[in-house]
Design a protein around this nucleic acid. Structure first.
Length: 255
DNA sequence: GCGACAG
DNA sequence: ATCTTGTCGC
């Protein structure tokens, strides 16, 4: 039944995806104010992890979404969607390169998640619209970003013990809401560097859509196993990057 | 003007 | 992100 997906995202298109870098930046400035913030996130039962990988020297984009059940963190669904890559990677415009494929993957998910963890920044972005925040607007769901590297902002040292974190702050921007949390120096707090594993390089957690930094940190820590990345993102990462258990094509299975 | 720069 | 071998550590 083409066109009859049980879960079609989104209900309302935010825009098409053929944009010049200049138009993309203008769009981010327009969308950033729509990102919502909440202190609580209740009734979470299904958590999704999303990540993107590439094949054919970048010609093909591979989106992976994993759905886990809370609180046991058992994977109950895994989707991999491939499509032609539409634009190159440009710092600050990552979402325009990766979200289209991600949406197609989410559309095939068996259930609508209550929270989505994305490999990348949430609002810890120059215009406060990293891929996690942008995806949250499209899916109309709570999202948070867990990145391995920093895009913008400053921070101090992070204690070496697991669970410790330090705020990531940035100079106030036009996109920041008037009530945005700030530190003692008046700098806007856009995320945090979390020590997810003892003596291991910290991950960068930032709220995406519909949750606060405190809540984003709570859920990230709650989904932590013994590895550096929280389970949702770690599993999506494995699938999207070709690693994991992928000896699934012994010379007999076609289709 | 000189770096920095998610994936 | 991706290309790549061995290697250090729990």
């Amino acid at each position: 039944m083409p066109g009859t997906s049980l879960y079609s995202f989104p209900r309302k298109p935010l825009h098409d995806w053929s944009l010049t870098p200049e138009q993309a930046v203008a769009l981010q400035r327009e969308l950033a104010p729509r990102v919502e913030r909440h202190d609580r996130l209740d009734d979470v039962e299904w958590i999704a992890g999303m990540d993107i990988g590439f094949e054919d020297e970048g010609a093909t984009t591979r989106a992976a979404v994993v759905l886990l059940h809370w609180p046991d963190l058992t994977p109950v669904d895994e989707i991999v969607h491939r499509e032609p890559t539409r634009m190159p990677y440009l710092p600050g415009l990552l979402s325009f390169r990766e979200i289209p494929a991600a949406l197609s993957a989410f559309a095939r998910l068996s259930r609508r998640p209550d929270l989505v963890m994305v490999d990348g920044q949430g609002i810890a972005h120059p215009r406060r619209l990293g891929i996690a925040a942008h995806l949250g607007l499209w899916l109309d769901l709570p999202t948070l970003g867990v990145a391995k590297k920093r895009l913008c902002g400053r921070h101090g040292e992070v204690p070496a013990a697991r669970g410790e974190w330090t705020a990531l702050s940035d100079k106030r921007r036009d996109e920041d809401p008037g009530d945005a949390p700030v530190d003692a120096s008046g700098r806007v707090i856009i995320g945090a560097l979390l020590r997810s594993r003892q003596n291991v390089k910290p991950v960068i957690v930032s709220p995406g859509h519909r949750l606060s930094l405190a809540t984003a940190l709570d859920w990230t820590i709650a989904c932590l196993g013994r590895t550096k990345l929280p389970e949702p993102t770690r599993l999506a990462d494995r699938i999207a990057s070709r690693r994991g258990s992928r000896f699934v094509e012994p010379g007999g299975s076609r289709l």
